[in-house]
């Protein structure tokens, strides 16, 4: 991930998608328009992005379904929705259930779009760093890590995973070393997506 942060714009209106992408390019993002969300999904693993700006109402696959699938491929991508049919129910869903960063109403407020994408790119890189640090953990270490950030003590974790407290202690030291953290608070910060 070097140079300008990559942003995809998905809209079944070719002109609008292109326009938004050019606008973002002018703001210093490497933005690229996509007409079809399925095509982007197919190509996504090869070239993941920091942020995706997507329309909600599209023909084959709507914005929410697309968001869920792309999030499965890449949990560290920020998603911003835009729509010409705004409803409060959709807005709440967009943020709560589909992990959207913002829900923009067409005609698009430029300042708000740029602010959302900037925030999304920052969030994405933060998230990627966190994930990168925990990526080196072994499956067992991962289990211990998940329980640790929930606030369980070593002894409790040993009970849950049917390990000796000493082993848990070892795993904990390994996790600290691999993620470069120096305490439980930092571990918890690493686990929280925000």
């Amino acid at each position: 991930m070097t140079g300008e942060p990559k942003v995809y714009v998905v809209d079944d209106d070719r002109d609008l998608g292109g326009s938004v992408a050019r606008l973002l390019c002018r703001q210093g993002f490497a933005a690229e328009p996509f007409l079809d969300p399925v095509m982007l999904l197919n190509a996504y693993v090869e070239a993941p992005a920091s942020c995706i700006v997507t329309d909600v109402m599209m023909d084959d696959l709507d914005g929410f379904g697309f968001a869920d699938r792309v999030r499965f491929l890449d949990p560290a991508v920020a998603i911003v929705f835009m729509t010409a049919w705004p409803t409060t129910a959709n807005a709440v869903d967009a943020v709560r259930r589909h992990g959207g960063l913002d829900y923009l109403e067409k005609p698009i407020d430029e300042a708000r779009l740029i602010a959302a994408v900037t925030e999304g790119v920052a969030w994405s890189s933060r998230r990627r760093r966190q994930l990168g640090r925990t990526a080196a953990l072994t499956p067992r270490e991962r289990e211990v890590f998940d329980l640790l950030v929930l606030g369980h003590s070593n002894k409790a974790i040993a009970g849950i995973l049917a390990l000796s407290p000493k082993t848990v202690e070892d795993h904990r030291a390994a996790i600290m070393a691999k993620t470069g953290t120096s305490g439980l608070a930092q571990l918890i910060a690493l686990a929280s997506p925000g």
Binding site: D13, S19, R22, L23, A84, W85, K106, P107
Partner: peptide, 21 residues
């Protein structure tokens, strides 16, 4: 009228962005 608003808002988005540019 809701449909008309929708239909207008789509091209208007493009128009506004390009006009600003």
């Amino acid at each position: 009228s809701v449909a008309v608003i929708h239909e207008i808002s789509q091209p208007l988005s493009t128009l506004a962005i390009e006009a600003r540019h």
